[in-house]
Design a protein around this nucleic acid. Structure first.
Lengths: 212, 212
DNA sequence: TTAGTTTCTGAACCATGGTTCAGAGCGAAA
DNA sequence: TTTCGCTCTGAACCATGGTTCAGAAACTAA
């Protein structure tokens, strides 16, 4: 709306796209995909419905962009975190935090992968590919944890699905204006969902222990 | 369809209702709530659309019944399990299994609580009350676990939400004709999601322990 | 000012899908 | 056989909501 200055056409378009995405994402998150109409999104932006179709082909494209943006961000962060030089357990902790923040902080991506089923085949496949890539990053991290002895996971694949479920489900109940803070959620999730080995690796050279 | 014999009218109606619920639940689960129309349900049963409205007021009622049946079952089972005389940790294990089976076995309830947002206020409140009751049973169990020393959970309320997320999310990906069996899912979930105390309570009277 | 391009408008179009309803089978009692 | 409920039918009704489009507004360049 307020982007005078000297900007190329493409830049202005890209900017407006983001603004629309932002509004759409917020509503999708708040009222659910099916229950937010194009007219709702337009009203939230204070414009006419037709304008949305000037920037996006259709509603599905809007949803697809939302999911892509969110997944790209998750992939970027996970790649960075995996590269860090730290025990797998603490990297998993970081990843859990990143994931929860990506889904619940501010206004963003919101419905991570949810709702893939209402996309047409080509788009759906693209999203699923990204999703799979992310899942595999997590599985890899779990396996590294087994290797460095900080994590236990009998079945990394299923464990990751359970982990993602616990995290993704938060979009269903976590309410920023609710009583629980995002920080406390992150803490609890880290404590609960990082499958530390029962007895953390000794920090001293000695193996003696006193059982109070 | 095939219930001749001597049955009172109410009995026949109740039976047919179950049949319809069964078909509806299956489709809701398979294609999602929004993407299954009344006509789809009718077709699956081999009858005309109108018949559905002879047994149920509307689509919403159909959904509400699905959720109620599922939640009632969960509540019944959780009540039984909580009453058992066993460490909280093993009762939690049982509950996890019961929950996963209820959601994914055979054809049943399927979308546990999901989709509450597409119910009108009175119905929604009724479902939410049941859901809350179930959540509180789980929270209670976690607290008992802290008391008897078998479980750890810094924040029982949030932990339960994460746990339920992990379990509920399974309806999004678990596919009975897929490669993973329900049994292996149950096992992995129990191993991952029961927050055992790092060092299980001694089973002997003595407290001496040998490391290595 | 004029011409041309970009951006926006909103009424209208149209498919989808929940819902209704007048009437038809059908079994049981009279 | 007739009557009377109980079941069922499916075409039609109608609201919702995604989408289109002819034109207006805004803005730039000549």
């Amino acid at each position: 709306m307020v982007q005078s200055e000297t900007k190329t056409v493409d830049e202005r378009v890209a900017l407006r796209r983001r603004e629309i995405l932002h509004a759409a994402s917020t509503l999708f998150r708040r009222r659910g995909l099916q229950r937010t109409g194009m007219r709702d999104i337009a009203r939230a932006l204070g414009v006419a419905v037709g304008q949305l179709y000037y920037y996006f082909e259709n509603k599905e494209a809007l949803l697809a962009y939302c999911q892509e943006v969110c997944l790209e961000r998750l992939l970027t962060e996970s790649a960075m975190i995996r590269r860090e030089k730290a025990p797998a357990s603490v990297r998993l902790s970081r990843l859990i935090e990143a994931h929860l923040r990506c889904l619940n902080e501010e206004i963003p991506g919101s419905l991570a992968h949810l709702e893939v089923e209402s996309l047409n085949e080509p788009t759906k496949q693209r999203i699923l590919r990204l999703r799979k890539k992310y899942e595999e990053a997590l599985i890899g991290l779990l396996k590294e944890g087994q290797a460095d002895g900080t994590l236990v996971a009998s079945d990394p694949v299923l464990t990751v699905r359970l982990l993602l479920g616990a995290l993704n489900w938060s979009v269903k109940w976590f309410n920023r204006d609710g009583s629980t803070t995002l920080d406390s959620l992150v803490q609890t999730a880290q404590a609960y969902l990082v499958p530390l080995t029962p007895r953390p690796p000794a920090r001293r050279v000695t193996t003696s222990e006193s059982s109070s």
